[in-house]
Structures are given as structure tokens and as C-alpha cells.
Write a protein that binds this DNA or RNA. Structure first.
Length: 279
DNA sequence: CAAGAATCCTGTCAGC
DNA sequence: TGCTGACAGGATTCTT
């Protein structure tokens, strides 16, 4: 899916067109994504005034006047497409359409339909069942090596799997976990509880730098992710290991001994890493 | 309780 | 060109 940097980029794109504006019209084109849309969603969005946005992990929260917020998750293939109003046809897999009074059309497109939309009370946002269990925000000050070390303590699972678990830290996905572990020089196969001390002091800044640089690049554009404006993020060109099976590791001194970037499968998902530089 | 597998869904790509 | 199977950014739910 869109991981934290992509979600942050999408949220900023939405804020630029929606913050302080009024939704003139909302339409739903099917009854559900992962779960049914909340009852009366289109009617409750139509005429709503948007106060602002925030992100929690991979979730976007759109705060409305009147005390309600809209929770949006992009799932694996979700994206927001912002275009001028005009066309009457609904693009393929566009499940929710918003139109602003300024003439912008915001479409939530999600072919695989793993995304979701919900309505909740703004005052109780963090108590929502999908947000309540999330770990710390990796780019906030509260995410320290001591905090991560405590979250990893006693866990008998590869560090790769532990970091993908949103209860450990919120917002990382397959790509950025691979990239952050490479940056920290840690093997994705290491058991989570062994990542302590100096290792976790390398890992926290590695996660933060990876995410910060990716956000600055507008995220990574894969097949079905683009920024709301239609521009492409370009962080995919900065990947050091993800999708680079067999290529030389740029940190390795080179042969002899450099076997290139390996791809393994952990809990059903591809992991890319350098066996030599990541221990 | 914790960890891993199965599952939801559609599109794309490699290989035949 | 067309078919088939593997695989894809996620996270819940089900099994061990």
C-alpha cells in the first residue's frame, strides 16, 4: 500500500484542495470496500465543511465542522485522484467522489478494495478500533530507541515482521522496512528481541531518515500510486534494496564476497537485503 | 498469548 | 496473441 510517506503525501494533496472548503456533493458508487461504507455517508458529507487533516500511521483523518471526522485508509491499491469537475463518467474503480464548491473533483480509486472509509466522533478519534492499537508515530519525538527497544523486548519473530506490525510502530510497510533495515545495517532475519542497545540506536534514526527523505520526494510511485495532483513521487529511484534482487549492493566494497542483494520470503512477503552489510 | 498462514480483491507481468 | 500462474504497497481473521 501506500505506506507512511505516500499517505502523508496524499493527505497534503487533499488538504490543499479541501481544507477550509465545503464539499458541494459526495457520491458513493458501490456499497462497500473492505467494509460497508457507514450509513448515510454521502448525505453526511454533502455540504460538510472541512476543518483540517491529520495522519495517524497509514490512516488519514479529515475533520469536519460539526464534530465528526472521516477516517480513510488507502489499503493496498488506493489512491486519490484530483481533477477539475466536468466529466460525467465515473472512472473505473472510483468508489467515492467528492466535489468542492471551487470545482475540484476528488475521487477515491481502489481497484483491490482493501481500503476503507469510516465516520467517527472527532473527540474520540484515537479510540477508534482501527487506531486504538497503533504504535508510536515514527517521526514524533516520543519514538525513541528506548521506546522501540521496549516494544521489541521478548518478541520471538524476525525484526522484519515486528516492524511491519503496526502495534510496534505505525506507518511502516514492506518497502520502508526493507530500506530502513538496510540503512541500519541490520539483518531482517534477526530476532526482534536481539535488536537492542547500539542496534536499536541505529535503527530509530534509520527509520526516521528513510521516511523523511521519502516524504521529501513525494513518496514512491508504484504502478497504482500517484499523488493527488497526478505528479509522480520519485523516492522509488532512491531504493537501495527493495526490488533490486541480484543487483550489487552499493555499500559493499565489492567482490570478492559481494553476493548482491538477496530476496527472501518472510511471513509471505518479499524481503530484500544484503547478506554482507546487514547483520 | 504470540506467531504464521490464509484471506479479501483486481491488475500486471513473465513464461509458455 | 492468448492463457496461466505468481505476485503486488495491507491488515484482519483464522490456525497452530
Amino acid at each position: 500500500m501506500p505506506e507512511l510517506p505516500e499517505v502523508e503525501t496524499v493527505m497534503r494533496g487533499l488538504a490543499a484542495r479541501l481544507e477550509g472548503r465545503t464539499i458541494r456533493l459526495a457520491r458513493i458508487h458501490r456499497p462497500d470496500l473492505r467494509w460497508p461504507f457507514p450509513a448515510g455517508l454521502a448525505a453526511r458529507l454533502t455540504g460538510a465543511h472541512v476543518l483540517g487533516f491529520r495522519r495517524r500511521g497509514k490512516y488519514i483523518l479529515m475533520r469536519l465542522a460539526g464534530g465528526e471526522s472521516v477516517l480513510i485508509h488507502l489499503g493496498m491499491s488506493g489512491r486519490m485522484v484530483i481533477t477539475p469537475c466536468g466529466a460525467n463518467t465515473v472512472p473505473a474503480h472510483e468508489h467515492l467522489t467528492l466535489e468542492t464548491e471551487e470545482g475540484w473533483r476528488i475521487g477515491f480509486v481502489d481497484p483491490r478494495r482493501f481500503g476503507c472509509v469510516d465516520l467517527l466522533a472527532t473527540a474520540a478519534e484515537d479510540a477508534h478500533r482501527l487506531l486504538a492499537g497503533l504504535g508510536p508515530e515514527p517521526l514524533e519525538a516520543a519514538f525513541t530507541p528506548a521506546v522501540l527497544e521496549a516494544a521489541l523486548a521478548g518478541r520471538i519473530t524476525p525484526i522484519k515482521a515486528a516492524l511491519l506490525d503496526q502495534r510496534t510502530v505505525a506507518g511502516l510497510g514492506n518497502i520502508y522496512v526493507c530500506e530502513a533495515l538496510f540503512r541500519a545495517g541490520l539483518s531482517p532475519r534477526r530476532l526482534a528481541h536481539t535488536v537492542a542497545g547500539a542496534a536499536v540506536r541505529r535503527l530509530v534514526p534509520a527509520i526516521q531518515a528513510t521516511l523523511t527523505e521519502a516524504i521529501a520526494a513525494g513518496g514512491s510511485s508504484l504502478r497504482d500510486y500517484v499523488q493527488p495532483s497526478g505528479e509522480l513521487g520519485y523516492f522509488q529511484h532512491a531504493w537501495k534494496v527493495y526490488g533490486r534482487e541480484g543487483e550489487a549492493c552499493e555499500q559493499c566494497p565489492g567482490p570478492p564476497g559481494c553476493t548482491g542483494i538477496a530476496r527472501i520470503v518472510q511471513s509471505g512477503r518479499s524481503t530484500f537485503y544484503c547478506r554482507r552489510m546487514q547483520r
